[in-house]
Nucleic acid binder design. Structure first.
Lengths: 208, 208, 208, 208
DNA sequence: CATGAATGAGACTTCATTCAT
DNA sequence: CATGAATGAAGTCTCATTCAT
């Protein structure tokens, strides 16, 4: 009935579909996104989607998995040569801010994660694992810093990682909710300063 | 005549309905909670719900408003005689932890807030205002501390309040997601220590 | 929730209710008028209406009967001393135009009559009888004219009455549908002229 | 698999659905016709209706538009080669009578037109335009007759067209309401005679 | 007489999903 | 691979009606 842009979008494989799906999920939430909407956005019919994915959940999982691995790869890629724990934390924070402000995929992950909590066991498990990995990643940085004498050894790395993950996610949500008046960069900048400050061995050379 | 599993639930007014509704919303999310489910839980028929509330959104709003004002009252009630900024922050944190762990209403608020973001303008606005008030509340405590020479005057109260709100919310979400392995109390305890530590004027008498 | 005008409207008897009901029915149609709307308009609750009327249909019947007898009384009252058939037709037409343009009760009758056709046997019967009476009334006038030698004796009074009733009703409907651009008075005036012209005995003294 | 009472009704497209819908609307009125009833009559499920039409109103519009254009085509097709104004009026009347008595679609149009008045702006507009076109059509015939010296030049074509349209519609309604005792053919025949008689130039050759 | 609360049936609509072609 | 048509379950909401107080 209103199809003038179909030809350009033909032969999308699974991959392209998850990209499109994630955009929709991010914009409207999982429940509020109908298969028809995704099909429309992809220039396909609903039937075509069912060719590629068993059902809506399957599509969601594929989309989430895609996005998650993409995000994690981009974090580890930029930070892996961690010569310095403080710098690693700074860079991690910067990557999070970038992802939060540059596209809505990150927002989708957070939104969906909360939406899925208690609603969808399988998905919740996936997100739980993701958060677990993220905290592990931060803990590794912290323990790396402790090993090199930059961070206080008495701090519990796991707890500190939980604080970090929470602070970043909480700030992001406030930003998503109110992008005009909540300054994500400044908030996370100030947080990082205090966070690193409280981790660092007193008397160590200033690096921030 | 229609329901024998919930005997003593006849005389619910509007108020009782919002309580029941919030439980359902908290457990399954807003979209996934049908009016029928709420009616069932209340031992009524769907029609009865519509007698009390214009539509599902109206019920949601009433429920959210109830819960919000209840939470805010409980926070201000316990903290108002703030003789001391540090104690006020501690108590605020304690109240948050309590609300987060003792019932699922708080979880509902957070979940719904995220679920509503971008989906429901009116609700988003309500939540935006709520977060705004909460940050304002924390900022007041901080500025109170600054006025009394307990907190560093160079810290920006608004930014610090954003950090606090985010850290608490982010920790809560991690807890809701994984209550078995995420220790909310310990995480927020450690956060508070570092937070207060970084705010406090160096050399002031230790109070934590 | 929005009741500031209730006291003024208390103790309405059956009579006042039918008046109010008919206004609603006229404005929105029978099906689209809910008991709640009528109750609201009357400043009562739905229960009160059920005290006065067995059910919605009962209220409708009472309202229709009221209106019908009122209209018929007003027609017969003005026309009965029919010294002259032509004048009687003119006056009948004038009364119809007045009723059609001065209030919406007449419109209600026509609308409802059509809406009820085939939908509600009992009501249809009532309207059938009403139309029957109306045609009988007109036929009486015509036959009166024939008896006095003013109208052609070869004309069938019943058929002519059907023409008249149809022309008036059809013109009214066009007027209700498009009051701005359909001139009811001029149309019925022209119709009457042609109608009387074709009924009148050629050569009889002009009276229009 | 779900319905064994209507065997040969599988391959209905949009077009067939409007036909079925119009039958239902004509029989029970718009409001009183549920989607379920139409679906049943079509041997489909409700969902199928919503596949073809956005909502009930959409279906109604499609149905009305279908029927209207069909009627108008059938009128213009039979009358266009109007060699003679009187014959044209006779044929128009005959077509109206035929449509009114042979199927209930015409009845539907009239019923719905009245039912929609004041209730549904968009539909009312559609019907207003239809009546406007119909009157225009009749006026054209009359002016054609005037141009050829058959009809009195002093008659106002627009007003006369309004009389005609009203008389036909009013007679139809009386017939729909009481098909047993109201003789549509005779009534409209007599009307047409008087109508043409009053339009015709006195002294012109008789043609009726 | 009247109200407030509730019922229950039925309406419209959406949507994930299936399947013949 | 993909579409168009369809299903069926479920959801939101409306409304005439009832009834204890």
């Amino acid at each position: 009935m209103a199809d003038a842009q179909r030809p350009a979008r033909a032969e999308n494989g699974r991959r392209d579909l998850t990209d499109i799906a994630i955009d929709c999920f991010a914009r409207y939430g999982y429940r509020a996104t109908s298969i028809a909407r995704i099909a429309d956005a992809a220039g396909l019919t609903k039937g075509a989607i069912y060719y590629h994915f068993k059902d809506k959940e399957d599509l969601l999982f594929a989309a989430v998995a895609d996005r998650l691995s993409q995000f994690e790869r981009s974090v580890t890629a930029e930070i892996l040569p961690l010569a310095d724990a403080v710098t690693a934390l700074q860079q991690t924070t910067r990557v999070c801010i970038e992802h939060a402000t540059k596209s809505n995929h990150r927002r989708f992950i957070v939104t969906l994660m909360v939406e899925a909590m208690g609603t969808n066991a399988r998905l919740t498990e996936q997100f739980r694992a993701m958060m677990h990995r993220f905290r592990g990643f931060v803990r590794d940085i912290i323990e790396f810093g402790q090993k090199h004498g930059v961070f206080k050894p008495e701090v519990d790395g796991a707890t500190a990682a939980g604080i970090y993950a929470g602070a970043v996610m909480g700030a992001e949500i406030q930003y998503y909710q109110d992008p005009e008046s909540f300054d994500l960069e400044r908030t996370l900048g100030a947080f990082l300063e205090q966070y690193v400050g409280s981790l660092r061995v007193v008397g160590a050379a200033e690096k921030v």
